[in-house]
Structure formats: C-alpha cells, structure tokens
C-alpha cells in the first residue's frame, strides 16, 4: 500500500496520522498485507463464506421494549448513568464542542 492509499484509508476511518505514524504504521500494515497475500495460494472455489460460527440466518425478536435488567438501580437501563459520561450535558442533551 503506498502512502496515498494509506492516507485515503485513514481519512475513511476518520484517523489523522502524524508524520511519524505514517511511516511506522504504514510499514506494519504493508507487512500484514503481504502476509494476507498468502491466502491467494489456496483454491477457495466451492467454499461458502462463514460469517458467523453457528447461526445461518438472522434471529428476529418481537418489536417490544426489552430493556436490560442486569442493573441494580430500578432494575432498568439507567439513563442518568449514561448521561453522566457526557463531556458536557444540558438537560437531556449532550453538548459537543463549538464547531465553526
């Protein structure tokens, strides 16, 4: 993978690499991709892809409220505990930094 490809990939992943990282990570990624090339030696014709260990189809559930009941408090999903993690919270909203 050349530098341009690496930077495009980084931008798709919303990662901004510093100069030193471009070299260090680029080298490690190139090494891994070379290693992945080994897979092309194998004839995979006739093999179905496995996406999941055991399930062959999606499992559906009824469209009803099904809250986590592992919690100690109120035996229900605790919204306050989630909001406490907000960097900045106003009423029931997360406030994000100013973006111009």
């Amino acid at each position: 993978m050349n530098k341009e490809e690496l930077l495009t990939t980084a931008s798709l992943a919303l990662l901004e690499l510093e100069e030193g990282e471009v070299d260090r990570l680029g080298e490690e990624i190139a090494r891994m991709l070379d290693y992945f090339e080994m897979m092309t030696k194998l004839d995979v014709d006739g093999l179905e892809p496995t996406t999941h260990a055991f399930q062959k189809t999606n499992r559906l559930r009824a469209d009803v409220l099904n809250n986590n009941n592992n919690n100690n408090i109120n035996n229900a999903f605790n919204r306050n505990l989630i909001m406490e993690n907000g960097n900045d919270v106003e009423d029931d909203f997360f406030v994000i930094p100013n973006v111009l």
Binding site: E5, T9, L12, A13, L17, L25, I29, L33
Partner: peptide, 10 residues
C-alpha cells in the same frame, strides 16, 4: 490505529 486502518483497507 494499525488494526482499524488494516480493517478499513480490506
């Protein structure tokens, strides 16, 4: 970061 980039690429 390395793994995210690798995964994004493949």
């Amino acid at each position: 970061k390395t793994r995210i980039l690798l995964g994004t690429f493949v």
